[in-house]
């Protein structure tokens, strides 16, 4: 049976922990709002870019762009593994890493990792596969990082160092659910044409649809990575909010139990002393 003092010390330290988790929970909640705002601000760009891409795809007959051709046969897969820089968010980061590993196992192929986020970098280092370059998720402006990653994977893809560009990143399903998602970004699977809508009108392109598309596709890759980074950020804070809410609740439950145990121990000590006093008094009276 632990002494009253032991229990009091434990309660004190647990209260400190609870303060920390509570503070982290509030910080995460504030940061989610900020991350969601940035995501919302990127939406007009996403919509406009998607619309332009659709017009182009409808207009081009055949396009000879490296992104539309299959990668070099037998080359390793290029996996962009995207996680947060920090932990304390439950299984958030390890879920992404595991999704990447599962994908690799299913394909049974060699892999080159392009980690974005410090946790992804650490995970990639532990594998037997090569990591050519790693980026931090939040150390620099996200747009610059996205551009850097896109440039690197594009160069490696065109040089035949990798056969595909695959993105493994968390998806923000809801505040409670974040799920890793695996997408093959390049080569672009058969130009997706929406037959129902067709071209809106006869669009004129300068100099030609093919030339504009050649410029637009790399931009599209860049922006896809940028918005994936924003989503990773938002999903991370949501996961951290959930994890810290649970931690605070669990600390509360444990505090209740410990307080009860401490009160019992204190009462037992008092009772014992009373018995001794009464026993002593009776002995003297006798």
């Amino acid at each position: 049976m632990p002494s009253v003092r032991d229990l009091r010390d434990r309660i004190k330290s647990l209260k400190n922990t609870q303060q920390i988790t509570k503070a982290m929970k509030q910080v995460a909640a504030a940061k989610i709002r900020r991350a969601e705002l940035v995501q919302r601000q990127a939406r007009p760009y996403a919509d406009a870019l998607g619309e332009m891409l659709q017009d182009l795809m409808a207009a081009v007959g055949s396009i000879d762009h490296p992104f539309m051709r299959p990668g070099r046969e037998g080359a390793p897969l290029g996996i962009i593994l995207m996680t947060a820089d920090k932990g304390l968010a439950g299984a958030f980061n390890s879920n992404v890493v595991r999704a990447g590993e599962t994908f690799v196992r299913e394909r049974g192929s060699e892999v080159v990792y392009y980690p974005v986020g410090n946790k992804a970098r650490n995970a990639a280092k532990r594998t037997r596969f090569e990591t050519l370059e790693a980026w931090s998720l939040s150390a620099h402006a996200k747009l610059d990082t996205a551009r850097g990653v896109a440039a690197r994977v594009t160069d490696d893809f065109t040089a035949g160092k990798i056969s595909q560009i695959v993105l493994v990143a968390p998806k923000f399903v809801s505040m409670m659910t974040q799920r890793p998602e695996t997408r093959v970004l390049v080569p672009i699977e058969g130009a997706k044409r929406d037959e129902r809508t067709g071209p809106r009108a006869a669009v004129e392109f300068a100099p030609s649809p093919e030339a504009v598309l050649t410029r637009l596709l790399p931009k599209y890759l860049e922006f896809t990575l940028y918005s994936a980074m924003l989503e990773t950020d938002a999903a991370f804070f949501a996961a951290q909010l959930v994890a810290m809410t649970n931690a605070t609740d669990n600390a509360g439950k444990l505090l209740d139990d410990l307080t009860l145990a401490m009160n019992k121990a204190r009462q037992a000590a008092i009772t014992k002393e009373m018995l001794e006093i009464v026993g002593g008094a009776e002995a003297q009276a006798g």
């Binding site: 009108a201 006869a202 669009v203 004129e204 392109f205 300068a206 030339a211 504009v212 410029r215």
Partner: peptide
């Protein structure tokens, strides 16, 4: 400034897309 030179766009322009 387009890749093909400066482009001036007025209202009611025909559908046009350039880099």
């Amino acid at each position: 400034v387009g890749t093909e030179g400066e482009e001036g766009i007025l209202a009611s322009h025909a559908p046009f897309l350039t880099a």
